[in-house]
Design a protein around this nucleic acid. Sequence first.
DNA 1: ATATAAAGTTAGGTTTATCTAACAAATTTA
DNA 2: TAAATTTGTTAGATAAACCTAACTTTATAT
Lengths: 218, 218
Amino acid sequence: MLSQTEENYLKALFHLTTERASKSEVGTNELAAALNVKPATANDMLKKLKQKKLINYEKYGKISLTVAGRKQAIEVVRKHRLWETFLYEKFEFTWDEVHEVAEQLEHIHSSKLIEKLDKFLNYPEKDPHGDAIPNAKGEIKIQPGKTLLQVAIGKTCKLVAVRDNSASFLQYVVSVGLGLSCKIRVISRQEFDGTTEIEVNGKKSIVSQKFAENIYVA
Amino acid sequence: MLSQTEENYLKALFHLTTERASKSEVGTNELAAALNVKPATANDMLKKLKQKKLINYEKYGKISLTVAGRKQAIEVVRKHRLWETFLYEKFEFTWDEVHEVAEQLEHIHSSKLIEKLDKFLNYPEKDPHGDAIPNAKGEIKIQPGKTLLQVAIGKTCKLVAVRDNSASFLQYVVSVGLGLSCKIRVISRQEFDGTTEIEVNGKKSIVSQKFAENIYVA
DNA sequence: ATATAAAGTTAGGTTTATCTAACAAATTTA
DNA sequence: TAAATTTGTTAGATAAACCTAACTTTATAT
Ligand SMILES: [Mn+2]
Ligand SMILES: [Mn+2]
Ligand SMILES: [Mn+2]
Ligand SMILES: [Mn+2]
């Protein structure tokens, strides 16, 4: 059985190589940064994960998940998102509170628990942030990738998911009147730095490029 | 914040000194045995817990919980039993399955989660094994201590709780027709070794002294 | 009261996950 | 293409939880 730390490395690799899929491989530094550890620490773990045949990795080369590693990673993501949904729907947690607790709950080992949880929630397909929940077979209904930054001026779109799950970002999102399924109209955008003016339910706000990149829309 | 290991030591101390309260102090060996570690390992932890002012302990002396240590221990016990109740009542776990998963869930840190869990279960007072669940203030409606072994021959009693929480014991209990609140009639008992003959719903069984000591009755 | 046994402690290791500092390889830039 | 920068690796430490083996203290039994 994998340790919590190993599970966190696989999850991070999954996010970096598959979910935010600009590329399907990552480097040591990027992985280390995502996990808030030093590259030397990540390097040690890479050797261990390689030895366990969970990643493809050669010295000085790029890193990717093997089929076995990907399977484990998806299981952790599934648990994380099911727990977030549970906390949100059954225990009145807000969407900026669920992530932190799910980070702990995702490491509970019990297949029966996860099956029952999934059933209890009526087999949800999305978590409170709009992210897809892998099903029991590990299948993911993959979701679009367009962000608010890519929406043309004058167009209206709908918020389908948020990229960042931190409480600070989510509270910021709420403060501009946004939430899942909200309609957003793009009023203007600065060429210079991507600063974007938007309108949500009649309320106008100006948000940064970084903000816009973290809002997925359809 | 305490580590999972520290929490487990405090919980074990609580069980040994307060719940199975033949005595209010324990020794290093007994504690080590309860935690399935070697005395040398327990000794290291005792120094740490003493330094954190969670236990009273002097070299070569007996061990007891401080007020602070007891408070932490009760919180872990509360979480453990609330989770067991949750799994049993909401997720169709059997009473011999809940303990193992609760051993993991008891270490999740989130006061909001526990408050909501308690509320969701409608503030239960007992877990699936009949053990008292401490309330949010840490108060415990203490329960009787009579075991099946102490019931006189010919008398009838009711199972109120089980001492051992292992799957093997609980399955054994079920196999003789027992469960919470079941009526038990004591037919006979051997002076020699405490072997006891009982009748449950018309079904007669012969159980060992060890078995009888692990059944609490009223 | 002493010898034996039991209980408890210490010393010295291991494994996992982390770090810093120094070094090596690969990539970018001039 | 050579220098500079970035990226990645290695060596050597540390802290938490564990272990075994040896030792010390306390309790028990003659
Ligand atoms: Mn999350
Ligand atoms: Mn995690
Ligand atoms: Mn239990
Ligand atoms: Mn535990």
